[in-house]
Design a binder for these strands. Structure first.
Lengths: 208, 208
DNA sequence: AGCTCTATATATAAAAG
DNA sequence: TCTTTTATATATAGAGC
């Protein structure tokens, strides 16, 4: 008589897993599950999500939808009346906490920088290893150029944000505090971000 | 004889929900579920996660761990140049246009993803040895494609930023920028990979 | 690191309050 | 809208490849 081949799924306490191997396995499985859920949410409800996960090992996994071009397009399309729309939305108490978004943005910038540096390092490595091949020069230069552009853009973005903040502060101080009380949706503790869509990676992919 | 009080959970197709009411309910439930999963992943594996969701109604929901302040502190500590400006931005004003910030955040997340992919591609390349020519290998093509996308996106972003900056400048030409000229976003940024504190946000919001 | 399998823990669709 | 209930669909722990 055969004994049970498996005990099946066991209940676990939601607390940091101590056994390293377990942790790694669980991280991998649950990350997949999370991304899958995100992609389903995207599809079912037609929303945009972005998720970034920093693994214990320092790796970054991400998942996002839609792609940059779409966001950029929408951004441009909305630009003409961004101001009024913004104010309207804010007045309607439909938005998240700004300080937190700022923090998040800074964090993202920080991480982007990190990733960029890693990219550059790898690129450099590759370049050094094959620099004797003349036909590789173009693509290498392009890489560097792209990265330069990215850096410049990031700097511009930061400037823009500062200007915006400054301007909005000026507006709100002599009129109404359009932000009123804390409009942090969750009661102030957390904030998340995620995006996804069913596409290239199996059911999805991942964003960070 | 009583009939079944409920059919129980029914299987659904993962496709955009058409009935508005259903969509709203599903969005709410699944968003909660997603955040819960994220929080469990945080706790179980001690990782950092950020999720941003743009609802169909235009609302923004976010979830993040650790708390934004901690992330910001870490970030500021590592970026002395950003320190003063960031503190001003965050501490003094605590505001900016949310739709814009969200857009930018979204953009950041996507860029981060792109960079990550590129990083991985380069990494992969290096691992495979340097015997492949960039125009021959699929992975290389993806890399090139990503770079092209990045370039296009960056150009669009610059355009957008220019337009916005112009507009905002015109509107706030009477106010002084407290941010001065320091816009260096580069710092000796190192990758954070340490274990995080045992967070006790527990999965707040008391959802479920 | 990723996949399989089983048995069981969880998430959640529908309906109702 | 948010909750609760019910029955069922899914996710996933543990073990092995």
């Amino acid at each position: 008589m055969a004994k049970k081949p498996s005990l099946g799924r066991q209940k676990i306490k939601i607390a940091k897993i101590q056994i390293k191997n377990h942790l790694q396995v669980t991280f991998s499985k649950r990350r997949s599950g999370l991304f899958k859920k995100a992609s389903e949410l995207c599809t079912l409800c037609g929303v945009e999500i972005a998720i970034v996960v920093f693994s214990p090992a320092g790796k970054v996994f991400s998942f996002g939808h839609p792609k940059v071009e779409l966001i950029a397009d929408r951004f441009l399309a909305r630009n003409p009346n961004l101001n009024s729309t913004s104010l309207h939305l804010v007045e309607s108490h439909r938005l998240a906490s700004i300080p937190e978004l700022n923090m998040q943005l800074m964090y993202m910038l920080n991480e982007l920088e990190t990733e960029k540096k890693r990219s550059e390092a790898l690129d450099e490595m590759r370049k050094d290893g094959r620099s004797q091949f003349w036909w590789e020069a173009p693509i290498e230069e392009l890489n560097v150029h792209e990265l330069e552009q990215l850096k410049d853009s990031m700097e511009e973005l930061k400037k823009t944000i500062a200007i915006q903040a400054n301007k909005l502060f000026a507006e709100s101080s002599d009129s109404i505090s359009i932000f009123g009380t804390n409009n942090n949706i969750n009661g102030g503790v957390d904030h998340y971000s995620g995006a996804s869509h069913v596409q290239s990676y199996g059911y999805v992919h991942g964003m960070m």
